[in-house]
Design a protein around this nucleic acid. Structure first.
Length: 594
RNA sequence: GGUCGGGUAGCUCAGCUGGAUAGAGCAACAGCCUUCUAAGCUGUGGGUCAAGGGUUCGAAUCCCUUCCCGAUCACCA
């Protein structure tokens, strides 16, 4: 396609003296209502041609027909020049794609940009929910896409393992847990800890209500609550390094991590390096004091440290409290310091919800002022909330969708559907498990990733489990279908050719499909440049949709003309390849049968 | 109120670096399995692209104004 663009540029230059690098030279895929493969919009060149749109289009078309071996026809509709490209060119493109197993996927060079992606970032006091699922899927997919575009990528996770929230769970466990463990309870550790967190909240609420009934105001009651004071005391002891508290903390966090690991594994996400806030929160303090010396920050009379961002159109920002303890922002600076020490990062991407837009705006400025090379250009990959049809998820109202439950449900539905359709009859049980897991997880992942991350999305438990239409299973199904054809071919002794004969006659649908898979390379680049898994998702869907039309209209194995048959087989195999590679960028596996 | 996102079919969403008659899926209705997997394919109906103005040969897309929804503006994380 690039060479055809060059030929068009050559034509415009020769006819009208237009600069060959003119950005207005844009070739797009011809709409299906019109004849041709590629369309040039000629309006931008009318000033140079001094002719009507029709005459200009015809003139360029005529020139290309004469001077280009690849252009075999043209038609001009209004200001649109539709070009037909020779079939041999298309077959050669297909052969090129076929000879590259990882078509569209670049290897990272040793000196490629090093990008660190932070995602997931859970608190250790409760299990992961639907919002985390979106975060994890986006982060992982983004990493896959950036890698495929030739970058070196480090996936990282910052675990918020310290603070009052975990003390609440610890206290509740001490008081009412009777020494229970995940093993004894037969429960994942993160869920067990989550239960104690809820228990604390309920008991605390009871206390506050009881105190209010005795005539205290809500604020007074909250301040007087013995339970909350005990939790605060526990935090103080934690900070002081009290071994008993630390030991309990380590044990309970350990339970949570074991639970998270299970969830991560099922989700198919992983990390190259995990940071813990308990290890980074003190680092920020040091960096802030350094900034204080440099005059980037200033100290108020009460001893607190601030940054003045009014020049940047923002407010003043607190970085150290009067008692010298750090706040959220300080911790993020500390984490940044460690990361920069550990890796020569060129770019840092934070996958964090849009409720923290302001935080990252500030963080970017502060890191820049503190001398981090990548601070100014840090990317906050901001995504919207996941809402339920009834509205937002609220833990108080018990409408939070738990990640583990959700995955169970998706896989269970996949199993039920498969069994209903009888698709996996005769498969070994382990095989059925494997495939239904792929389908259930594929449905979930695709449903979430196909949507523009910026938007709040509605998660309808019923619709997201739909396996028809624009869904993960539909795409997986097409892959399985192609694999089935390839199996049948092998069974009847037809070998998949490595290359197709360039003289083979092509139908419009075949040309269109070749054009489509060829575009994968550019789509990967664009998805990386715009940080958009959704682009990959929608591209793959369109490709698969088109393949199914082709599959319906043309016979592959029963085609009597062996050159055509071989080409269709090769084309199908390469559609499957691109589908697999594309879905891999979303973290979705594709089965060979379903 | 300030700042940042969003508003496209009944519902969920594409399209947004300006290009031809705004696309899918779901839902509804009507068809297609002695032939490579019907989780598929084909067709019908469904739109003031929030509203108004501007720029342009051309605007869902760019600019301005207004309206609606969300987030945020903590010595919480």
């Amino acid at each position: 396609m690039d060479n055809i663009k060059a030929q068009v540029a050559e034509a415009l230059n020769s006819l009208y003296g237009i600069d060959k690098e003119n950005p207005a030279i844009q070739l797009q895929k011809t709409k299906k209502e019109f004849e041709g493969n590629l369309t040039l919009v000629v309006f931008p060149f009318l000033k140079a041609s001094h002719k009507t749109p029709e005459a200009t289009a015809a003139e360029i078309g005529e020139y290309l027909l004469k001077n280009s071996a690849e252009i075999t026809g043209y038609n001009a509709v209004k200001g649109f020049l539709n070009l037909t490209v020779a079939g041999t060119s298309w077959v050669e493109k297909l052969n090129g794609i076929a000879s590259d197993d990882k078509y569209g996927i670049k290897e990272a060079a040793a000196d490629a940009p090093l990008i660190m992606i932070e995602y997931s970032s859970p608190n250790t006091n409760k299990p992961l929910h639907l919002g985390h699922v979106r975060n994890n899927l986006l982060g992982y997919s983004l990493a896959q896409i950036l890698k495929a575009a030739g970058n070196r990528v480090i996936k990282t996770n910052i675990v918020n393992d310290r603070g009052i929230h975990i003390c609440k769970s610890m206290l509740a466990w001490e008081k009412w847990g009777n020494g229970i463990t995940p093993e004894k309870a037969g429960k994942k550790g993160d869920h067990l800890i989550g239960d104690f967190y809820v228990l604390f909240s309920n008991k605390y609420k009871e206390e506050v209500e009881a105190l209010q009934a005795k005539g205290m105001s809500k604020e007074e009651a909250e301040a007087a609550s013995p339970l909350m004071n005990e939790a605060r005391e526990m935090l103080r002891r934690w900070e002081a390094g009290d071994e008993k508290v630390r030991s309990l903390w380590r044990t309970m966090n350990g339970w949570v991590y074991a639970g998270f690991d299970e969830t991560y594994k099922r989700l198919g996400v992983d990390f190259d390096k995990i940071y813990y806030e308990s290890e980074t929160y003190l680092e920020g303090k040091e960096k802030v004091l350094e900034g204080l010396e440099k005059g980037v920050m200033y100290r108020k009379e009460d001893g607190s440290v601030w940054a003045d961002l009014t020049e940047e159109g923002l407010d003043e920002k607190l970085l150290l409290r009067a008692d010298g303890t750090s706040v959220y922002m300080t911790q993020d600076i500390g984490t940044a310091k460690l990361r920069f020490r550990d890796y020569p990062i060129d770019k840092m991407i934070y996958v964090v919800g849009n409720e923290q837009n302001y935080h990252f705006q500030v963080l970017s400025i502060l890191l820049d002022k503190l001398g981090f090379a990548w601070g100014k250009g840090l990317v906050h990959f901001s995504y919207g909330m996941v809402e339920l049809p009834e509205g937002k998820m609220k833990s108080r109202e018990g409408t939070v969708v738990d990640a583990d439950d959700l995955m169970d449900e998706m896989v269970e539905t996949a199993r039920a559907t498969s069994s209903e359709l009888g698709k996996l009859d005769g498969c070994a049980p382990e095989e059925i498990d494997k495939i239904t897991t792929m389908i259930g997880m594929g449905a979930l992942k695709y449903f979430i990733l196909k949507v523009d991350p910026r938007k709040n999305m509605t998660f309808n438990p019923k619709e997201s489990i739909d396996f028809n239409g624009n869904t993960g299973p539909f795409i997986q199904y097409t892959h399985a279908r192609i694999c089935s054809v390839l199996r049948k071919a092998a069974e009847s002794g037809i070998t998949l050719p490595a290359q197709a004969d360039p003289a083979t006659e092509l139908s419009d649908k075949e040309v269109s499909l070749i054009q489509h898979i060829e575009a994968f390379k550019n789509i990967v680049g664009e998805a990386a440049a715009t940080y958009s898994p959704a682009l990959i998702a929608n591209y793959t869907y369109d490709l698969v949709k088109e393949f199914n039309q082709f599959y319906h209209d043309y016979s592959i194995l029963h085609e009597p003309d062996t050159a055509k048959r071989d080409l269709r087989l090769l084309l199908s195999a390469n559609v499957a390849k691109v589908v697999k590679n594309g879905m891999n960028l979303l973290g979705i596996d594709v089965p060979e049968r379903m």
